[in-house]
Amino acid sequence: MKVAVIQMNTKSDKEENLRKAEGFIRQAADNGAELISLPEYFNYMGEESGKIENAEQIPDGRTTSFLSGLAKEYGIFIHAGSIIEKYSNEKSYNTSIIVSPDGKIVGNYRKIHLFDIEINGVSSYMESNSIEGGDSAEIVELPFGKAGMAICYDLRFPELFRKYALEGCNVFFLPAAFTQYTGMLHWETLLRARAIENQCYVIAAGQIGSHLPGKVCYGNSMIIDPWGTVVAKAPEKESIIYAELEGERVQSARESIPCLTHRKPQYY
Rank of each mutant, 00 (worst) to 15 (best):
M1Q: 00
A4M: 06
I6D: 10
Q7D: 10
S12E: 15
E16K: 15
N17D: 14
N17G: 11
L18E: 01
L18Y: 06
K20P: 06
E22T: 10
F24E: 03
I25D: 03
R26M: 02
E34Q: 15
S37V: 15
L38Q: 10
F42D: 01
E47W: 05
E53R: 00
A55I: 07
A55M: 12
Q57T: 12
I58M: 13
S65K: 13
F66T: 11
L70D: 15
L70G: 12
A71H: 03
G75K: 06
G75H: 09
H79C: 09
I83C: 06
E85R: 13
K86C: 06
Y87H: 08
S92W: 00
S92L: 00
S96E: 12
I98S: 10
V99F: 15
I105E: 14
Y109D: 04
H113E: 11
E118P: 01
M126K: 12
S130D: 01
D135T: 09
V140R: 13
L142I: 04
K146A: 00
K146E: 01
G148T: 06
G148F: 03
G148M: 00
I151T: 02
R156C: 15
F157C: 00
P158G: 10
L160M: 13
R162P: 11
K163I: 14
Y164A: 12
A176P: 02
A176R: 05
T179L: 01
T179E: 10
Q180T: 05
G183P: 09
E188L: 05
L191F: 08
R194W: 08
I196S: 04
E197C: 02
Q199K: 09
V202G: 09
V202E: 07
H211S: 07
S221E: 07
I223L: 14
P226L: 07
V230C: 06
A234Y: 02
E238Y: 00
S239L: 11
A243V: 07
E244W: 05
E248C: 12
A253I: 03
R254P: 09
R254Y: 02
S256D: 01
S256T: 03
I257K: 11
P258R: 12
P258M: 05
P258D: 07
K264E: 14
K264P: 07
P265A: 08
Q266A: 12
Y267F: 15
Y267M: 14
